[in-house]
Nucleic acid binder design. Structure first.
Lengths: 230, 230
DNA sequence: TCAAAAGTGTTGACGGTACACCCATGT
DNA sequence: ACATGGGTGTACCGTCAACACTTTTGA
C-alpha cells in the first residue's frame, strides 16, 4: 500500500480550549494561561497544545486542559477548526478549537490548581491574547450564546443544586438581557426537567427552593421530539 | 525561536466535502466520486484530499471540489473535524469535513464535468462509502436539516429564480414532512425576503410567479435582530 | 420592623394551525 | 371541457409578554 500521505510536508495540528466559568451572581469568565515559551512568551492564551499521534482531538483537548489547568470531567464540545495560513508565527499550524463549561461555585477563586499560572478573566476585561485566540474566543462566545437558548447546556455552568433565580441570572448574564421572573419560572417549570429537591438554599433572606437538572428525563423527551428553548 | 513543532511526528490533514444537490421535485442528492487509488479503490467516497501548506481549509475544500467534480463558487461551510485514530488505514489522518449546497436545475444529469467519475446519489440510495464517510455524511445531513430551519440556506439548493411551490417542496423534502400551502406562503411572504419578479414559470398549467431571494435585505434584517425561521 | 430576595396569576396580543375553493393555462 | 398545479382568507387556539403584590427569613 502506498503511503504517499507521508511524503509531503504537512501542517501541525493543535487544540485550543475556550473554558467558560460562572458563579452565581458573577460574570462569565474565561480561563487563560500565561505562556512561558516563545512565541508570545508572557502573553495570555487559551489552554491547548499539540495533538498526539494516538489520541483524538477530544482526547487531546481534555489532556491539555488537565495538564495546564487541572480541570477534568467537564462539558467539552468541538467549536471550529481555524486554519489561517499565518495564524502561528512558528509555521503552518492549524488548530481545532473546543469550548468547555464549568461551574465555579465552591472552587477557590484562583482555580489554577497546581498547574502553571492560569487565571479566570471576566469576558469583558480580557488581556491581549496570543495568536488568533481573541478571534477563537469571539466565535466561542457566539456559539455559547446561541446554543444556550436551544440546548440545556446552561446547567453545566451551575452547581448540581441551584435555585431558579440562579438559573435566571445565568441566562440574563449570558444573553445580556433581562428576563421576566414569572414568565421565566413558568416556562422552565412547564418543561418539567427540573427536580425540586428536599433542600433549600439558606441565606440572608427567604430560603429558596433548590432544583437539579434531570438529564435522563431530558434525553427521553428529546428523543420524542421535545425542543428545549429559553 | 524554537521550532519545536516540527520535531514531532504529526497527523496528516485532509478535507472532505458532503455536496448536496437538489432539483425541483426530486430528492436531495449527494455527489460522490469513485476512488481510483488505494485504500478503498473502486469504492465511492466524498470528494476531498490533503491540505496544502499554503491554503486554508476552506481553500483546500474549494480546490479539491473543483479538481474532482468541476464545481466552483458554491455555498460551502465547515461542518466538523473528524479525528478517530483509525479512521484511515494509511495512518493517522484527521479530516475537516465541509458541506456544500448546489442547485441541480439546468445541470446535465451526470454533472461530473470533465473530472473523473463523479455521480449524484439520492440520499436514500447510497452505495457503501469509504473511510468514515458514511458517518460524516450523517452528520452533514443532520446539520443541513437543523440549519435550513433557521438560516436561509435552502435557497442555495434552488436556482436564482424559483416559485413558492418549489421552495415549499424543497423544505418538505429536506425536513421530510408536509407543510400547509397557505400557511407556508403567508409566512414566507411576511418575511419580505423574496422579490417577486416580472416573470412567470410557464408549464402545462397555470403560470407561477417567480421569486428571487434578496440576500442584501436579509443581511440588513439579520443585523437588526430579525430571525429567519421556517 | 425593616431590608432583601422568593414566590405567585391574570389578561391581552400575537402568531400558528387547520381547513376548501376558485383560477389560469395547456391539451 | 377537463386535468393540473397556482393562488387565496378566516376562525380558533395556544403561547408569549406585560405587569405588582405577598411571603419568608435574617439582621
Amino acid at each position: 500500500m502506498k503511503k504517499y500521505c507521508y511524503d509531503y510536508p504537512r501542517p501541525s495540528l493543535t487544540v485550543d480550549c475556550a473554558v467558560f466559568g460562572y458563579e452565581a451572581g458573577g460574570a462569565v469568565k474565561v480561563l487563560l494561561i500565561e505562556r512561558d515559551a516563545e512565541p508570545y512568551a508572557g502573553t495570555w492564551a487559551l489552554p491547548g497544545g499539540f495533538v498526539g499521534m494516538d489520541e483524538t482531538l477530544d482526547e487531546a483537548a481534555r489532556r491539555e486542559l488537565e495538564e495546564e489547568t487541572g480541570l477534568a470531567n467537564i462539558y467539552l464540545e468541538q467549536l471550529y477548526t481555524f486554519s489561517n495560513v499565518h495564524r502561528d508565527p512558528r509555521g503552518r499550524v492549524i488548530s481545532t478549537a473546543y469550548y468547555a463549561l464549568v461551574s465555579l461555585a465552591g472552587r477557590t477563586p484562583q482555580a489554577a490548581s497546581d498547574a502553571r499560572s492560569a487565571q479566570w478573566y471576566p469576558l469583558r476585561k480580557l488581556p491581549e491574547l496570543a495568536f488568533d485566540h481573541a478571534h477563537i474566543l469571539e466565535t466561542a462566545v457566539e456559539r455559547l450564546r446561541a446554543k444556550v437558548r436551544y440546548k440545556p447546556i446552561g446547567f453545566e455552568l451551575l452547581p448540581e443544586k441551584f435555585t431558579l433565580t440562579q438559573l435566571q441570572q445565568l441566562y440574563e448574564t449570558v444573553l445580556e438581557q433581562s428576563i421576566d421572573k414569572r414568565n421565566f419560572r413558568k416556562k422552565i417549570i412547564a418543561m418539567d426537567l427540573l427536580k425540586p429537591l428536599d433542600e433549600f438554599r439558606q441565606g440572608a433572606n427567604r430560603p429558596a427552593q433548590l432544583y437539579s437538572f434531570d438529564r435522563t428525563k431530558y434525553r427521553q423527551l428529546e428523543q420524542s421530539g421535545f425542543l428545549f428553548e429559553v
